[in-house]
């Protein structure tokens, strides 16, 4: 098997809003980051085909529980990772946003599959052309639907984010500005 992981990205670049002074991870932050990374409870927002592949990821052959993520929290309060899988129609968009707003910090968003990332083949009047128009997305997984391997890769990308994130990132003005740009809160 040829390496399928990201070859270009050597070290994980800090996403917007966590760079700058005062944001270097201390050892406590490292511990918290590792803990968060290994306990990402997903909220499977499965609308269509990708949801079935998510089931496969949960299934015995791939077993998402190895990453500590097998407890799907259907209540957004308890979830850490919003996994948007499948087409988000314009009718659904406010609901996605609401679910995101209901999630407690820290929260990450994983857009899985072409439809959630960009609308995919459904460039039609009723489909939202990518969920990043309504909520900030941390990791995109291409594919229609992505293979479970890709889903796990995506999950590991989110883990990398969680590991390297400062505890205070969520209070930072940059993050607030990001949320404000999406009209959240």
């Amino acid at each position: 098997m040829v390496d399928t992981r990201v070859p270009e990205i050597k070290s994980v670049p800090a996403p917007e809003g966590i760079e700058g002074a005062g944001f270097f991870a201390t050892s406590l932050e490292k511990v918290v980051g590792i803990a968060r990374a290994n306990s990402l409870w997903p909220l499977p927002f499965a609308t269509s085909c990708c949801g079935i592949e998510f089931m496969a990821t949960m299934g015995a052959h791939y077993d998402i529980s190895r990453f500590g993520s097998e407890r799907p929290s259907f209540s957004p309060r308890q979830a850490d990772l919003l996994m948007v899988m499948g087409t988000i129609a314009k009718k659904m968009a406010p609901i996605v946003k609401q679910v995101y707003e209901q999630m407690a910090e820290p929260r990450w968003v994983l857009a899985m599959g072409a439809c959630a990332c960009s609308g995919g083949i459904f460039d039609s009047y009723s489909v939202l052309q990518g969920i990043d128009r309504i909520i900030p997305v941390d990791v995109y997984i291409p594919g229609c639907p992505p293979r479970p391997e890709q889903v796990l890769d995506g999950l590991m990308r989110v883990q990398d984010l969680a590991k390297n994130e400062s505890i205070r990132r969520r209070n930072s003005p940059e993050y607030q500005a990001l949320l404000a740009s999406y009209n959240i809160k």
Binding site: T87, I88, K91, M92, F122, Y125, S126
Partner: peptide, 24 residues
Amino acid sequence: YIHRAFEKIAERRPFYQITPLTDR
């Protein structure tokens, strides 16, 4: 909630490109 306008898309796609639509 996931209305994707299959029938409308199908009006704009050649026959062979409709197969991926039916998949979904």
